[in-house]
Computed example of a mutant assay.
Amino acid sequence: MENFEDIMKAAQNVQEELQKAQASLENIEVEGVSGGGLVKVRASAKGIIKGVQIDDSLMTPDEKQVLEDLIAAALNDARVKADAKSQEEMGKMTSGLPLPPGFKLPF
């Protein structure tokens, strides 16, 4: 039964480390960019949008469709970067944990 207890302790440690990693993702920021920097979106590694910056040159009625497209592209870029950063950070936290091969986190 000692082996089972070791497994349970390891699972508790994994859960604690995951909670720490999830909390740290809120403080890590990424920036999505489109239009060569005309539109920028700041987001947390958890994907929460923190801010949007739009170049003044896009603030004309003629540029409405372009602006909408650039905002969508910047949001998507931020999301991709947030996902990548999240995976990177979670990988750092779980790299030293004794997990079986092929075991994916979170559960």
Rank of each mutant, 00 (worst) to 15 (best):
A23D: 15
A73D: 03
A23E: 15
D56R: 13
A72D: 03
K20C: 00
N13S: 13
A82C: 08
G36F: 04
A74N: 04
E16W: 00
K104V: 14
L97V: 09
L38G: 06
E2Q: 14
F4R: 14
S95A: 15
A43F: 05
F4T: 14
I48L: 11
D62A: 14
I54Q: 05
A23T: 06
L18E: 06
L67P: 07
Q65Y: 02
M59S: 06
V80F: 08
Q22N: 12
K81A: 09
N76W: 02
A73E: 01
D56Y: 01
Q19M: 09
S34R: 06
E29L: 10
L67V: 05
G47D: 02
Q65V: 07
K9T: 10
D77E: 06
G96F: 05
V80W: 01
G96V: 04
Q87R: 14
L99Y: 08
D83N: 13
Q19V: 04
K92V: 10
M8N: 01
A78E: 01
A78R: 04
M93I: 00
M8H: 00
Q53C: 03
K104E: 15
N13M: 12
S44E: 05
D77P: 07
M59N: 13
L67F: 06
A73S: 13
V80R: 15
E16V: 08
K85L: 05
